[in-house]
């Protein structure tokens, strides 16, 4: 299993009250598999995604990334994991404004010592970024920026690709095309895809679908 959650609970404080945002959540995801998570705003989708990316900590249960239990890992080991095994496509893209498109695409792979210029060029080509490689993010449209974020995530050839509303900035049609491309590319890298979306249409394109409501999976 690339990703396995076992009865994971996370509590957040909200106006003096502690409320579980995730309540005993369990799921698993195998290599090459794709999973869509849907839910209302504030249902805890993003939190679950962040937990899966070793970005946040949980209160009980266990998460196994590539069969390693996260609660045993030090801060440095978690950083190492993020650098080499997991990549995230953020809702706000989080691309670096002062680096050009090419450097942004290569950034994560470089940090994880997996830099492969040919593969990055191929990704850029497939995502329609080849002519934009020397532009800076501020010169790109929202959709182009989203595609840069996707390219950066895939450039690492991660074991697990996490995507938070990766098509949120795209119209329906383009969104579908990008999703199809992502699915094709993770097959090439044998990555598992864990995708958070509020769109049932997008979700239906993936192998499995889960719905989060009130901190519990349905």
């Amino acid at each position: 299993m690339v990703l396995k959650l076992k009865e994971v609970t996370k509590v957040i404080a909200q106006s003096d009250l502690e409320r579980p945002i995730l309540d005993q959540v369990s799921l698993s995801l195998a290599a090459g598999e794709s999973l869509a998570l849907t839910g209302e705003s504030g249902s805890g989708k993003s939190t679950l995604l962040h937990l899966a990316g070793a970005l946040d900590v949980f209160d009980s249960g266990e998460i196994y990334l590539d069969d390693q239990p996260l609660s045993d890992l030090s801060e440095a080991a978690r950083a190492e994991l993020r650098r080499t095994s997991v990549s995230v496509v953020f809702q706000q893209f989080n691309i670096i404004p002062s680096l050009d498109v090419a450097a942004n695409i290569a950034l994560h792979a470089r940090l994880g010592n997996r830099h492969d210029a040919e593969w990055e060029a191929y990704l850029a080509e497939r995502l329609g970024l080849s002519d934009l490689l020397h532009r800076f993010p501020e010169q790109l449209s929202g959709g182009q920026q989203q595609r840069v974020a996707i390219a950066r995530a895939l450039a690492l050839r991660p074991k697990l690709l996490l995507a938070d509303e990766p098509t949120g900035s795209l119209d329906e049609e383009t969104g579908q095309a990008v999703l199809a491309l992502m699915l094709e590319l993770i097959r090439e890298t044998h990555s598992a895809l864990f995708l958070v979306t509020h769109s049932p249409t997008i979700a239906s394109g993936l192998d499995r679908q889960l719905h989060l409501q009130g901190g519990r999976l349905r």
Binding site: L55, A76, A79, R82, R83, V88, F90, N94, L107, H108
Partner: peptide
């Protein structure tokens, strides 16, 4: 700040 955040998300240890 955003860059620092992103870098940390991408696995650069804080130290």
């Amino acid at each position: 700040r955003n860059m620092f955040r992103t870098l940390r998300c991408l696995g650069v240890p804080f130290v």
